[in-house]
Design a protein around this nucleic acid. Sequence first.
DNA 1: ACGAATTGTTATATATATACAACATTTCGT
DNA 2: ACGAAATGTTGTATATATATAACAATTCGT
Lengths: 78, 78
Amino acid sequence: MVHNRLPVLRAERGLSRKALADAVGVNYQTIGYLERGDFNPSLELALKLAGFFDLPVEMIFSLTPFRPLSEAIRAEQE
Amino acid sequence: MVHNRLPVLRAERGLSRKALADAVGVNYQTIGYLERGDFNPSLELALKLAGFFDLPVEMIFSLTPFRPLSEAIRAEQE
DNA sequence: ACGAATTGTTATATATATACAACATTTCGT
DNA sequence: ACGAAATGTTGTATATATATAACAATTCGT
């Protein structure tokens, strides 16, 4: 199972699913499936999403659960 | 289409396809398909491969063609 | 409070990734 | 030079990702 930070990243930029879907060239419902964890993106889609958010793939998708970004930031400040 | 550096990385470590396949938990022929570009790995497999090689996904898989590692190293030395 | 946009969900169809088997060809150790 | 391991390739079967449609529920702008 692959965990993802799509909902947070999308929310942070105030994007609708449709807007994100258009940006990476997939159907808007595909984004919904991904956010709900119904399935994982293909590698190609993952790379496009990483490109769009300008983040490494690993910061968006992970084999182990993500810490909430808020926590991660606090931890980093020690 | 996704480009990949699997053949180089595997060769560099003197691994057989079977050894790599076992390490990431897939059939050895799946590695063959990937190296030949017959299809792309799932995101899950890509993350496992990145973990195995201890490299970011983007250094193994890319939407744009890779420069040969040898060239990339020379370019970096300028 | 209204309508419009967004989201959640279900269903169907197609494309793609993976497993597995079988076999020919190539490479490698001794 | 021999056998063993590794590779390339083809075919079949199954699981998963994506597109699309349809609709109910929710959120948002005005």
